[in-house]
């Protein structure tokens, strides 16, 4: 029997495991944290339909008890030995996991907003990230650290995306629609709050995304200002003063806000970024894994038996991730049958 290991217990890794288990293939699933779910654990609702993220995650929980699944939680991969035909995954705890096929589903990191120091994250208490706001939705409470209900909130798009200064020139695709989703969600929580989105351009690529954008303006009175934030500073009362150029009016604009939310983009995971410095697997200049080609060999690496699933190859929505993961599962099955 071929041994299959999946690295990463986010939705991509879970979906691959689920498909393989359904085909009666035993799977070893390696997850670095203490719980399965990955980044989706941070989300309350998913765009564009406000689907409950927890519900989606719960749909995978039954896998934990599957006898064919060996789940290694709190396990970080230290090294993969590619030298023999059966690969060997060595964990940091010294466990060795031999595998004929490995699915890399290591996902993404959110951009560390401290790198964009001029926006003041980590320096000013009322500057938060979109991940923190999502946590507030989960806790059903939106408050500043001093306990104040914010009256004016600014959403700052493209933080760590499309920004050569932090080394990320690509678009993370999902932050625009996430911002609109979060703005609407915030407005639902705080109907009297004023909400502004500061954007470069809005990339509403999905089928229903444009409708969400319209609805945000029409039904929720969310204001959109085209202009990139230049800098944020803290006022005496801890509110945030933002400086931005409204490029539609063509004038510089200064505005105070009780809270600003930085829409942090998606970056390659630490696991994939290390391949920028070490040989082993191919990553692109952004540190994401490179599939053989992005069209019909989107799940394969140039190494036989090493597969890719989900956002390890670049920013994707949850739905796209699951589709991709199912494709990967199919590739793994054909690999097993061919050998």
């Amino acid at each position: 029997m071929k041994k299959i290991a999946v690295i990463g217990g986010g939705v991509a890794g879970l979906e691959v495991s689920k498909q393989l288990l359904e085909a009666n293939i035993p799977v070893t699933l390696i997850e670095q944290s203490s719980k399965i779910g990955g980044n989706i654990k941070n989300y309350a609702y998913l765009f564009p339909d406000f689907y409950n993220a927890e519900e989606l995650l719960n749909s995978y929980h039954y896998l934990i008890t599957d006898p064919n699944l060996q789940l290694l939680l709190n396990t970080e991969v230290a090294k993969i030995d590619f030298s023999k035909k059966t690969y060997n995954i060595l964990t940091k705890d010294g466990i060795s996991v031999p595998a004929d096929a490995i699915v890399i589903a290591t996902g993404y990191n959110t951009f560390d907003a401290r790198l964009k120091e001029e926006f003041g994250y980590g320096i000013y208490e009322n500057v938060i990230t979109s991940v923190q706001l999502e946590q507030m939705f989960k806790n059903k409470e939106i408050k500043t650290p001093s306990g104040k209900i914010p009256e004016r909130i600014g959403f700052i798009h493209c933080v760590g995306s499309r920004d050569a200064k932090v080394g990320n020139t690509y678009c993370s695709r999902l932050c625009c629609v996430t911002a609109i989703k979060q703005a609407i969600e915030t407005k639902k929580f705080l109907p009297s709050a004023e909400i502004f989105c500061f954007y470069i351009d809005l990339r509403m690529y999905g089928l229903l995304f444009e409708d969400l954008y319209l609805s945000a303006q029409r039904d929720y009175n969310i204001q959109f200002v085209r202009g990139r934030l230049s800098e944020a500073s803290e006022m005496l009362d801890k509110r945030i003063l933002i400086k931005v150029e409204d490029t539609l009016i063509g004038k510089p604009l200064q505005m105070s806000a009780d809270m600003i939310v930085l829409m942090v983009g998606m970056e390659a995971s630490d696991f994939s970024k290390q391949f920028k410095y070490h040989n082993g697997l191919e990553v692109n200049e952004h540190g994401f894994f490179n599939p053989i080609n992005p069209h019909n060999l989107r799940n394969l690496t140039s190494k036989d038996g090493i597969f890719l699933a989900g956002t390890a190859i670049g920013p994707m929505s949850v739905g796209e991730t699951l589709d991709h993961a199912r494709g990967t599962a199919l590739s793994v099955l054909s690999f097993i049958n061919a050998n």
């Binding site: 230290a78 090294k79 993969i80 030995d81 590619f82 030298s83 560390d112 401290r114 790198l115 980590g122 630490d270 970024k273 290390q274 391949f275 410095y277 070490h278 040989n279 082993g280 697997l281």
Partner: peptide, 11 residues
């Protein structure tokens, strides 16, 4: 240290 990129060896 917030910014440190992990760099452990993979062969």
């Amino acid at each position: 240290l917030p910014h440190r990129e992990k760099s452990y060896a993979i062969s």
